[in-house]
Design a protein around this nucleic acid. Structure first.
Lengths: 191, 191
DNA sequence: ACCTAGATAGACAAGTCTGTCTACGTCTGC
DNA sequence: GCAGACGTAGACAGACTTGTCTATCTAGGT
């Protein structure tokens, strides 16, 4: 069965992850994935019955990785402000590293127009999980749900803004905004 | 010269605008644009020497339209909060109307990985103009630059977030965050 | 009446795309 | 020793891609 993780499958998925993110889905052909994975055509179609199936696997893997990385970036902080700094610091790091390629999930969604498609649904579930992660990270510091949702919007805006403007300014702006909102919330609470 | 606006050119550009936005750039072929524009192949290549040239024209036109629409949505308000409500109200309206298709400029950027490409540069200039527009709209109410930049991030995050989650919640969150930041700024100012 | 510019339809080149197929090799368990 | 699983290499089908080409038609100016 699939209990043993096939190295071929992993290799194909790794190549696809790189190419889908760096180039985009439509523009990346299975021929290129096959060639750069150094596997045979049949091997590819054995593990993934179609390009779209590979896309689904890519979204699942990448989504989980991203959530985990974001959790690590926000964990172990001593304050809500610290969590925010961890999050946006990681976002900045990644933006520079990827040459402002933006969010892999959102980029994929932009290539699937139909809002009812399986891809869009997967992206929706992922972003929903990201939203829940914000709650999880800020909850220990008494930050309420509505505010964590607002910070989530700032994270999304930071990534999208950096990809548009090709620099890290929007990420800094987002962090400042998050700090402002947290400060305000603290002040309101003490009243 | 190009002083007389050719109706054919306009027709092609209108079709491309629709298809590029609804479907995406790579997936939309010139054949489809030609067919749905009801022009001859040669006519297409007469007005646009290549698909990429058409893309550039699309970005220019759509970018200008978007800025203008956003200006109208934020203009004629009596307070900074009113401007924010106008802006996010328009963003919400559009998100629903387009079935959460997101931002046409950002979607296009996501299909051009090379950060140095002409397309990415055009998107960058557009977002820069959008940033300047935020300043212009909020300036009459004494809102300073850094804060308008933060609101701009919220606008970006609202559009991207709505496209991801397939609902308008992120837009409401963004508005709440903007109102919070404006309120906080007003309070700080009075201190 | 004639000439030119612009539009038309459509063939065409040269390449790409996804997915299926055959034919051949190699490794493992029984 | 041999069957079956798994791998490889590569041909192939059929559709699609962008951009160029020819050949015909039509309208306006002189």
């Amino acid at each position: 069965m699939l209990s043993t993780p096939s190295p071929h499958r992993e290799q194909i998925l790794a190549t696809a992850t790189r190419l889908f993110f760096e180039q985009g889905y439509t523009i990346t052909g299975v021929n290129q994935i096959i060639a750069e994975s150094s596997v045979a055509r049949q091997t590819f179609y054995h593990h993934f019955p179609s390009k779209e199936a590979l896309c689904a696997a890519y979204l699942d893997a990448r989504g989980a990785d991203w959530i985990e990385a974001l959790r690590r970036a926000g964990n172990g902080r001593r304050s809500a402000r610290g969590v925010a700094r961890g999050l946006f610091g990681y976002v900045e790091e990644l933006a520079i590293e990827t040459h402002f390629r933006g969010c892999g999930m959102l980029n994929m969604a932009s290539e699937f127009a139909d809002a009812g498609s399986a891809v869009r649904e997967r992206v929706r579930v992922h972003k929903s999980a990201q939203r829940a992660l914000m709650r999880e990270l800020f909850l220990p510091f008494g930050v309420d749900g509505p505010l964590t949702d607002q910070i989530h919007v700032l994270v999304e805006g930071a990534i999208a803004g950096a990809a548009s403007l090709l620099n890290v300014e929007p990420i800094h702006d987002a962090l400042k905004a998050a700090e402002g909102l947290l400060k305000k919330a603290g002040r309101d609470e003490r009243r």
